[in-house]
């Protein structure tokens, strides 16, 4: 039974870390005032680019070195795609939901077309050599040891690093404060000398990078190929940003909660308690979403949405 407990923890990590990375990515963009609805497309772009890189570097580089570089490549792809969205939103003042949705629709189709053109098939497969079976000393730590340091991927640790970076950036750095200002009151920020457009571009670039990275971190543990799907996790991440009230720590907890519920839904078949209940599999599938709705009912009264979210910034308007 203890094995199931550790296993549950490991699975939860695999589920919650990519979700959190992508949600944090969305947060960077939205805190600066640009709605980022294109997380699904960004994840796909990153996953595609990363998978292509892994596939071509399979014989050249050792396992996790390749994976680390692939994560960077995925991030860069995310930035490239995000520029489409941010150019339209920041410089041209176009509707942000429109360009976000356009990216979500364009990227899966585009990656399929590219994959077929380059590889002849729609799936991009790679050998999954990145599983870390055990990290020597740390895995002996009671309870958290086996959960965090066995059967894990480096993307899990990178996820936590991203979280820490995000908290530091927003609380301590000048860049973070400027970003915050730009999202709440761009006119006031501009009058203080902060360049709104430049800040927004930087924020969305970071957003694209992490979203792409998150996309690759999502598919690697779950399949040995990229098949133009991230199972709707991009949209889920959008929901988590809102659920987490645009704050990093809350987003962490929102992701944890969601992942916890999802993992129960996935592994209930080996937990005798749930088997005995005899519930239909659909009940388990619904639980994460119902739980989120219930929590939101109680917590949505006061919304911390950035005040200038979604409004194109026009310098001529004061």
């Amino acid at each position: 039974m203890i094995n199931i407990f550790y296993f549950f923890g490991q699975q939860m990590l695999l589920c919650f870390v990519p979700l959190m990375i992508v949600a944090l990515a969305g947060m960077y963009s939205e805190r600066s005032g640009i709605i980022n609805f294109s997380l699904e497309g960004l994840m796909l772009a990153g996953a595609f680019a990363g998978a292509m890189f892994l596939r071509s570097m399979q014989t050249v580089l050792p396992g996790n070195v390749a994976y680390s570089l692939a994560l960077v490549v995925a991030g860069l792809a995310g930035i490239a795609v995000m520029m489409l969205h941010s150019y339209s939103s920041v410089s041209l003042g176009g509707s942000q939901i429109v360009s976000g949705m356009a990216v979500n629709l364009l990227i899966p189709a585009l990656t399929i077309v590219l994959a077929r053109a380059i590889l002849g098939v729609l799936q991009v497969d790679y050998a999954n050599r990145f599983l870390i079976a055990e990290i020597p000393v740390l895995s002996a730590v009671p309870i958290i040891g086996p959960i965090f340091f066995r059967q894990t991927y480096i993307s899990t640790f990178i996820g936590f690093i991203v979280f820490i970076i995000t908290v530091v950036v927003f609380k301590k750095t000048r860049f973070g404060m400027r970003l915050h200002a730009v999202g709440e009151h761009p006119q006031a920020a501009e009058s203080l000398g902060i360049k709104v457009a430049a800040t927004r571009y930087r924020a969305t670039a970071i957003s694209g990078f992490f979203a792409g990275l998150g996309g690759l971190a999502f598919i690697v543990p779950n399949a040995s190929e990229y098949a133009a799907s991230v199972a709707g996790y991009g949209y889920l991440a959008c929901a988590v940003v809102i659920f987490g009230q645009w704050q990093p720590i809350r987003i962490l907890w929102a992701s944890v909660l969601f992942a916890f519920m999802k993992t129960i839904a996935n592994v209930y078949t080996v937990i005798p308690f749930f088997i005995a209940l005899g519930w239909s599999t659909y009940v388990y599938k619904m639980i994460p979403y119902i739980a989120t709705v219930i929590i939101l009912i109680f917590t949505s009264k006061k919304s911390s949405q950035p005040k200038a979210l979604g409004e194109p910034y026009d310098r001529s308007v004061k």
């Binding site: 199931i4 699975q11 695999l14 779950n222 098949a227 799907s229 999802k262 993992t263 839904a265 996935n266």
Partner: peptide, 12 residues
């Protein structure tokens, strides 16, 4: 389809 749910199920 290939998704984390099936992976987790098999792993469990």
């Amino acid at each position: 389809s290939a998704n984390p749910e099936t992976q987790a199920l098999a792993a469990a």
